Amino acid sequence: MRYAIASFAVMLTSGAAIAQDFELPGQMSWTAYDTGSAGYNQAVAIGAALQDAAGINLRVLPGKNDISRTEPLRQGRVEFSATGVGGSFMAQEGAFEFGAENWGPQPIRVLLANNGGAINLTVGVAGDEGIETFADLAGKRVAYIVGAPALNVNTEAYLAYGGLTWDDVERVEFGGFGASWTGLVEDEVDAAFAATNSGNAYEAAAGPRGLFWPPIDAEDTEAVERMQAIAPFLVPNTATVGATIDGTDGYEGAGYAYPVLIATDETDADLAYNMTKAMVELFPQYDGKAPGIAGWALDKQDMQWVVPYHEGAIRYFEEAGVWSDEAQKHNDDLIVRQEVLTAAWEALQEESPADWDAAWAERRREALGQAGLDVVF
């Protein structure tokens, strides 16, 4: 179908939906977080805009964790993934679950990211436990999501803010994000990580236990440094959107880009270009259709983030006049970082160490250090 500014003209074209400003397949698939999550709800809203504007059917496949969201992308079974720092930054780094011998550093490329700033990504606690600070989590039951390093590292970072580690709490394992929040409502756990605007958080707030978000004090530099030593992408932020937050003066917590729409370096440049273009040009159609969705706007993009942008997205940014020489230099440096990690991984594979996890953790840090790059994790 052809999408025009003022009218629609319908035509059949070998299964593709062709727009005046963008050309995409008539059927597409993304992976996203669990149903009920902010990422899933936003992907559905974007899909509705694509359907209304150009007849494009976007299938959103919920994934319980970073691995299950990234595997279909790696296999080419979906075009893109709406993920978080786990499926983007940690996948690039070959860290945590992505350090397993069957994974390794992934050539992730970003198209757009939700940098709204209206939400926080933080640890919420049951309102009936009397937990007021992150230090109060000592001895409490804290959710740990199997196969979701981003969620778990973020939770660990908030524990560190409170001067705690996983050893100071009772770690309760769940198979997915949604299950952890069901566990909070049903008194199986006392704390879990989420975006403040996730549907699960709203459900918890309306449940019998209630919901409370312990605050972050940006002036407590030592506590913030402990948090950022675990998760360097977390920054103090005032949220105005979310469960128990809507209609208030805001909640002082921390956040980062979420969701992040990613591809790989093998994704066709024209496809990435047109998907980026569609996301930007259809923004007025999906803006306001899900909590926190405003952060997808072009003027909210961080062109010097921690994962490189796809060449197709960069082509669109250049046409829109929002890409700079500094952004290109930063992007090139990030690609070099990925190449350093990949080379270290391939060299270690040839050695076939008996204890892969320990060997890769050491080799990874060694390779980054020798290249003069920041050593994270």
Rank of each mutant, 00 (worst) to 15 (best):
A53T: 13
P62W: 05
A91M: 03
T35G: 13
S29W: 08
N102H: 14
Y40M: 06
G87K: 03
Y40F: 15
S29G: 10
F96G: 02
A91Y: 02
S81D: 06
A82E: 04
M90T: 00
G99W: 09
F80L: 15
Q75M: 15
V78Q: 10
S37G: 09
P72G: 10
G47T: 08
I56P: 03
I108H: 02
I46A: 09
N102L: 02
G87T: 03
W103Y: 14
Q42N: 12
I56H: 01
Q106G: 00
T31D: 07
E101N: 09
D52A: 15
T83K: 03
I56T: 10
I108G: 00
D34S: 12
A82H: 09
Y40T: 07
F98R: 05
E101K: 13
E71P: 00
D52S: 15
G55A: 11
Q42Y: 02
A45V: 11
Q51P: 01
Q51N: 13
R74M: 15
A43E: 07
Y33T: 14
G76L: 12
W30K: 09
L50K: 08
G76V: 10
S81C: 13
G63Q: 01
E101I: 05
S88I: 01
E71M: 12
A49F: 06
G87V: 03
G94K: 02
